[in-house]
Write a protein that binds this DNA or RNA. Structure first.
Lengths: 408, 408
DNA sequence: CATATTTATTAAAATTTTTTAATAAGTTTA
DNA sequence: TAAACTTATTAAAAAATTTTAATAAATATG
């Protein structure tokens, strides 16, 4: 029975455990390296070549690993290359937004085997687990995914989340907070949940702009300001899963009232909420702007993207608004740089698409608030695939977790 | 030749390397657990009991490990316990302050085998490496430490330090920045340098109040505000070794001029410098206070400890001053909590001795600036051994590093 | 283009490790 | 206090891994 069962449940003897751990390592390696030769694997896991080959052939029998052509050689016989079998393992990845959710199925090569399916829900939806399960079933049936080969379900969502306990502390009804339990019941599979910004950070680290940077910070700049950290090459969750709360940090004593109850949180002066609010205000006051022309008397249709579009078309009012939130976020980023000394900061989310209209003010704030020696090496870049980063991130995390629980 | 040489220098075959790594693991384990039984070791390093015993007997022959009595049993034969040999390995630990340095020698049980020797120097001292070497020699000779058994030298100092390269970027003359190289030349031994606050953090994590807390923050509250972080159970240095710069972070747009060139750094409103400056100002203005009585016309003799003493004796002026810097540091701590979600914050340094006179205002600031859910689980405690934490920390770090380079 | 060189793979021998069984040395309980 | 039960250690047998040698397959070179 493919990979199921529990190695901790049944007692395993020393050597069996050893081989189990070695195989786990191989799967892990192949997941991250696409293809590897027998020699490379033997070196990386610290066993001799013949032993590595034995392990690989056992994994091949389980249909988890397959050979894939030959590699390059610099003067000698070409090595056989091994990779994870493409369509023998799948995961379901789901990303919950404020009002909508996306769901998709990936294989172990991180290729989507279904398109993204969207549906309406939110974290306080009593029907949350039902809806996720229903829509997953739709995908499974429509695209004929072998259910036995689906190894787990990953869900990202906003809120203060403890990934170890599988609890979202932000959910209002206490009895509904244990999302992992609710979903595990429905699916009968391993379930992993974590904060959306953190999984986006992980996605950028494994596949995106933060790849190869052991100390990276990823910011999801949209309705709030989500922040995820990669520290020493690992995703950092914080001691109770609340790390990265920049959004509700006060950088001014005064300021607008925030949904959290405090005044002057960064969210009230650097989020897309604030951007739209001020754009609408300007339109209502009939400032000279393309936005006024386009949205007068239909202000509720004005979205962050419209402000960015206007700015790119040279609209001064829009540029000023973006500049303002750029300076504000820049202050928050500065503090983060001083404390964390990251290699790179990746900006994702709607506002990141404003590119130089926000990057310049951010850099300006950094110059003002950071010591030059610390900030001068930090790269600040815009994500290329932020709309998929969260889904890819939680998929990668699931495979990682699964490869730690596999057994013969 | 005891532990010297280099395993990377000479080619080692597969099995030799394997055994080398296993032995390294054993030394590592014994360093952190004091004593362990053969069974415990075999489980922890993932080999069978007979193999563990073989490795242990080989380490015993090298005089690195010794048996040490028997352990407890809950219904069976008592196991033989193993520990690191006490006086077969030593390290030299040195802590550089602003004007003075301390130096000491520890054995592998973290026991001091000499008292602390103090001498005058500073990071920009051209004679720095000479002075450290000279004073180390004094200790070695006076306390008859076998020089061949000294495995390395660790030095903590203020500044922006890249531990990997062994460079202190804060040193003025560029040709003197590579402190590790300068010292390695003198000593002919492995040298490790790192920032003082970070090594203090590590000391608190291995031996002090942060022990057992995988995500901890340690603050060295004295002339500046040093900050060290333990993240996922590892010391975090930052990508270029500059992590933890809270001291020169601006939390107000206005403010006093700081030595770094900016205005309003936390250092200008929360350090002992600021405390003394304001105390002196008060004395000169003849405020009603025990400090005025004691230090009028000899204000240059007023130290932070005097303000703390006065506060403990009920002096209102002193209490107000401490309250003020407590609120200011509390603001900095709040941001750190929001971002890092630590389990515990340990306060060390002179000012930490003011205890409740600073803990209360710090908590007040936290209540104001943090989300309750994040801050409510954080413990804020005062270090018990902060004057030794840095020395113990770098000693522990050295042993850790050394156990990674040992060979047969 | 054949030969030398490099690298990978396979097979057999040597070594190491694990497993199993037997013995030793304790603790708990009747 | 002796018998039953646990746990540790030792020793021998069994299994697994590494090493070595031989072979295969490619590249580089004269």
């Amino acid at each position: 029975m493919l990979l199921t069962g529990n190695i901790n449940g049944s007692k395993v003897s020393g050597n069996e455990l050893k081989k189990f751990l070695q195989k786990k390592k191989i799967l892990h390696l192949l997941y991250h390296h696409n293809t590897l030769s027998g020699t490379e694997i033997s070196n990386k896991i610290g066993v001799s070549f013949p032993t590595a080959l034995t392990l690989l052939s056992e994994l091949s029998e389980l249909k988890l690993v397959e050979t894939y052509g030959t590699g390059v050689s610099s003067g000698g016989r070409k090595p056989n290359m091994y990779r994870l079998a493409g369509n023998s393992l799948f995961v379901i990845a789901c990303e919950l937004g404020r009002y909508k959710a996306k769901i998709i199925i990936y294989n172990s090569h991180n290729k989507a085997v279904t398109p993204i399916l969207e549906f309406d829900t939110h974290i306080d939806d009593d029907e949350l687990s039902n809806k996720i399960h229903e829509n997953a079933r739709k995908l499974i049936e429509e695209y004929k995914v072998d259910e036995n080969k689906i190894l787990g379900v990953g869900v990202t969502m906003p809120g203060l989340i403890d990934e170890n306990q599988g609890i979202n502390h932000t959910i209002k009804k206490e009895e509904y907070r244990n999302v992992r339990e609710r979903l595990a019941e429905k699916f009968g599979k391993m379930v992993y949940i974590n904060n959306d910004a953190r999984m986006q950070a992980y996605g950028e680290y494994i596949f995106g702009k933060a790849k190869g940077h052991e100390n990276a910070i990823v910011i999801n700049w949209s309705w709030g300001i989500g922040l995820g950290m990669i520290i020493n090459g690992k995703l950092y969750n914080g001691s109770t899963g609340f790390a990265g709360e920049l959004s509700h940090t006060k950088f001014t004593d005064e300021g607008d009232l925030c949904i959290c109850g405090k005044r002057g949180c960064l969210e009230t002066e650097a989020s897309s909420n604030y951007l739209v609010k001020n754009a609408v205000k300007g339109v209502q006051e009939c400032v000279v702007s393309q936005l006024t022309v386009a949205f007068k008397d239909k202000e509720n249709q004005l979205h962050p993207e419209d402000v960015i579009k206007a700015a790119k078309a040279g609209d001064e009012f829009a540029i000023t608004l973006l500049n303002k939130i750029g300076l504000a976020l820049g202050k928050g980023i500065s503090f983060t740089i001083q404390l964390m000394n990251p290699e790179i900061i990746v900006l994702g989310g709607v506002i990141s698409q404003a590119n130089r209209f926000v990057l310049t003010p951010i850099q300006q704030s950094i110059n003002k608030y950071c010591l030059d020696k610390i900030s001068s090496n930090v790269k600040i870049v815009v994500s290329e695939n932020w709309e998929r980063a969260g889904l890819l991130g939680i998929s990668a995390m699931l495979f990682q977790k699964l490869f730690s629980e596999i057994h013969d």
